[in-house]
Design a protein around this nucleic acid. Structure first.
Lengths: 179, 179
DNA sequence: CTGAGGTGATACACTATTGTCTCACTTGAT
DNA sequence: ATCAAGTGAGACAATAGTGTATCACCTCAG
């Protein structure tokens, strides 16, 4: 019953619940998180010494999950737009995780690194002539990050089908929504 | 020295400071807000009976400011894209205000109304053949709302010039960032 | 059956925040 | 000069949230 650490499902259940609760209210209390996770507040404190501990654990998990998902979905040899589509398809379902990082995580090495990697990647796409060269790279990255989050929101709200979201995101990014 | 209510500049200074502080940390304390506003905490409580009072006042002000700005900038007879550009130009400088509403203000009549008006407007643009008909209206609105906020962030971070932002936003929305 | 490990509930101390109140001070109008 | 209005500073009580500890209970491996 012991996975890698000493805690089996409880810890993960708490993290999952915390991501949901904190997405809706960044200053949610430990009690609210415990309630959502279906555990007692004492158990929450057994798993995570302090609130900061919990936040850090969530951050680590979000980084790990999104990194794994994008690494697994990347097809370096595929055409750039297909690559982009696969990336969106992999990350959009993790939109809440992705968003958590951009929100809780200013001044965090792992997150700064990720941003830098995104900048580099977009720079490459621009050099390869896949994206407009006259648009600031930081603007493109901001659009990509935001597309993940808004796509997740639209899917979560039931206004867009999950299957449609990746293509919609790529289209919005590359061709826009004009006629 | 008495405007419309009993309070001249103090109240506005507090609201302005609160918007800034709360944008950076939604759970900022009244002390932090008072400090940023350059007033004593007691004065803050004189102007706003409670924290909820302050939040509501901010919300009202944000709605008013953004409504006024977009109304003043709207040129009903101009070409659609120019109209869009003028709207972005008027709203982007109020990006923090605009964002505050989407964040603090779920379940608020005035904000629901605004969303409905945006839906209607985009529907019109689609009927006029200015925007793609095969993209969900809610998706378009989400993109517009988000463009205002990310544009404001990029400008605030000094990565994009304020003068460039509106055109960049229109271009991103209508033509995308592809080559 | 039995015991170890994990849990929920609860009580507790401690801290941070909120909201109220008072008082001395400044400022601007008369 | 004087007075009223508004302010900053600080004391204060009340409240909410955090983190710790204890105890009874469950359950699963042995």
């Amino acid at each position: 019953m012991n996975d890698n650490a000493l805690r089996p499902t409880t810890r993960n259940a708490i993290i999952d619940a915390a991501i949901i609760v904190l997405a809706g209210n960044a200053s949610a209390t430990m009690s609210e998180i415990a309630l959502k996770a279906g555990v007692g507040r004492a158990t929450l404190h057994r798993q995570f010494r302090s609130r900061d501990d919990l936040i850090r654990a969530i951050k680590d998990q979000c980084i790990r999950e999104t990194d794994e998902a994008s690494a697994a979905a990347d097809h370096p040899n595929a055409p750039a737009f297909e690559r982009l589509r696969a990336m969106f398809a992999a990350i959009i379902p993790l939109g809440d995780r992705y968003h958590f990082l951009t929100f809780e995580g200013a001044s965090d090495d792992a997150i700064t690194n990720r941003y830098q990697r995104e900048l580099d990647w977009v720079e490459t796409l621009k050099n390869d002539g896949e994206l407009a060269a006259d648009v600031p790279t930081s603007w493109v990255v901001a659009q990509i990050d935001q597309l993940v989050w808004t796509a997740w929101c639209e899917v979560a709200a039931g206004r867009v089908a999950l299957a449609d979201a990746p293509a919609l995101a790529v289209r919005t990014l590359t061709k826009g929504l004009g006629v």
